[in-house]
């Protein structure tokens, strides 16, 4: 029989080798597969996307910006441009890089897939918002036209992705850029977020941490070269101007009732015996989770009475339309209410 120490060492070595090869996503085998499957296509498609994004924002793209966005050297970026030009996707005239009509429609197709997939992730899966962009970045190169049309059909042909970016239609139509950067908005007028830039990841994470997403209302307090200060979601937030410039806003002119109100009570404040009337379900609650709450009859105007708290502290049982339903605290926090004061 094998000596136990040898057996343990051999087993750990085997586990380490298998982990190195097959670790989900990062394992050697998966990487090799990805490289073989995509070849240079993914890189080329990413390059077209970058050029399109710059064109959309009317900024000039360059070999440097391309290399930076794709995380490749400038030589590689230049090679990529040569390849794209050979295939008639790009026209390079001196320092000016322009997309040809074919290149533009190719880029729009990839962007359509990317944004549709982000929409799908946000509505139909439990993937958290930090991961939407990364996953869409991977899948955008794999899905073929039939998959994409099916996806769009099932989602009800959405017009915007969860970051507020317009999703190109099948014919490549796209809405013009909306709003101004938060760092250039006017202090004093209430504004509404219409778009949040999801790249680079570190910046996006900070924006998410402040709870900013399309539909959220802000009140700007001050803008200085060092910082942008504003009220959002009931708290005072501060962002560096560089980060604030990744958030696009328009001034809120529409009816206020359509917006999230930062000072609203939520269902979570109710103690057993207290009741309230639903104002709205927060926009952060999406897809299946949102539909489930509506299925239970939790709609604007519904009267809800808190009944009892689980002996382990969570969830709490509420009386909704004659039925007793238990909701977890994280759900109760998404349901905004007006307290009914006289009920005791």
């Amino acid at each position: 029989m094998a000596d136990p120490v040898t057996a343990l060492v051999v087993a750990f070595a085997l586990v380490a080798i298998v982990a190195f090869l097959f670790w989900p996503h990062r394992g050697y085998y998966w990487r090799a597969q990805r490289v073989r499957r995509l070849g240079g296509r993914a890189l080329l498609e990413d390059a077209l996307k970058h050029l399109y994004n710059f064109e959309y924002r009317s900024q000039p793209a360059s070999v440097e910006s391309l290399g930076g966005a794709l995380e490749v050297s400038q030589n590689e970026a230049a090679d990529l441009l040569v390849r794209a030009e050979e295939r008639g996707l790009v026209k390079v005239e001196g320092a000016v890089i322009r997309l040809t009509p074919i290149g533009r429609s190719y880029a729009l197709r990839i962007i359509r897939v990317h944004r549709l997939y982000e929409h799908y992730l946000s509505e139909e899966t439990g993937v958290t918002e930090e991961d939407w962009h990364r996953l869409a970045e991977e899948r955008e190169h794999d899905l073929d036209d039939a998959d994409v049309d099916q996806l769009a059909f099932e989602m009800g042909n959405p017009a915007y992705d969860p970051h507020g970016d317009p999703i190109p239609t099948v014919d490549g139509e796209i809405a013009p850029q909306r709003g101004v950067p938060l760092s250039e908005a006017e202090v004093g007028t209430p504004v509404t977020v219409v778009h949040v830039e999801d790249e680079p990841e570190a910046v996006y994470a900070q924006i998410v941490a402040e709870g900013l997403q399309p539909g959220v209302r802000l009140d700007l307090i001050e803008i200085t070269p060092e910082r942008v200060r504003f009220w959002a979601n009931g708290t005072e937030c501060t962002l560096a101007p560089m980060i604030a410039s990744n958030v696009a806003v328009v001034s809120s002119t529409g009816p206020v009732e359509d917006e999230e109100d930062e000072f609203q009570d939520t269902l979570a404040v109710l103690r057993p015996g207290e009741s309230g009337e639903v104002v709205r379900i927060s926009r952060r609650c999406r897809g299946l989770a949102r539909r489930r709450l509506m299925d239970l009859g939790i709609l604007p105007g519904t009267e809800i009475l808190a009944e009892m708290i689980s002996p382990s502290g969570d969830p709490t049982a509420y009386r909704v339309r004659g039925a007793t339903v238990a909701l977890r605290k994280e759900q109760a926090l998404q349901i905004q209410i007006n307290r009914t004061l006289e009920a005791h």
Partner: peptide, 12 residues
């Protein structure tokens, strides 16, 4: 991690 999730528990 990515599967959709929605809690509800009815107390009949």
């Amino acid at each position: 991690k990515g599967e959709a999730s929605a809690f509800s528990l009815e107390l009949p």
